[in-house]
Amino acid sequence: MERVPVLKIGEILLVSIQIDMEDQVALQLQEDLAERIVATGVRGVIIDISALDIVDSFVGRTLATIASVSRVLDAETVVVGMRPAVAITLVELGLSLPGIRTALNVDLGIAMLARQDEDIDLLGYEDDTDQVAETTP
């Protein structure tokens, strides 16, 4: 079975779904993400669905569950990159994804997470600059 990779970037977990997921793959992602949130202590999750040409009720429900589970684990989820045709279809299907925060792309998703968590340096830029400053003679 294929697996969707979960990347940690600074204080964010980034998931970019690039395959047409079997239902089991979506459920595995849900479990993997919960485990990685706890293991890393991140405060934000970004799920990029720009490569998905459909989101059916199963994937929609999985995204909603991921958002709820991360919130319980003190992390906020933003779903980014939904295609216009997917949005139209989802609403007509009857799924408006309540409880899921969305942004148009990864940049805006990161900005959204940064706004709600201003004291946290989400991408770890500050640490990097400090390190560079310290090691420069």
Partner: peptide
């Protein structure tokens, strides 16, 4: 949009 609707319906 119609492709997306039909593929979604087929998936369900």
């Amino acid at each position: 949009v119609d492709q997306t609707k039909l593929v979604t319906a087929a998936s369900e």
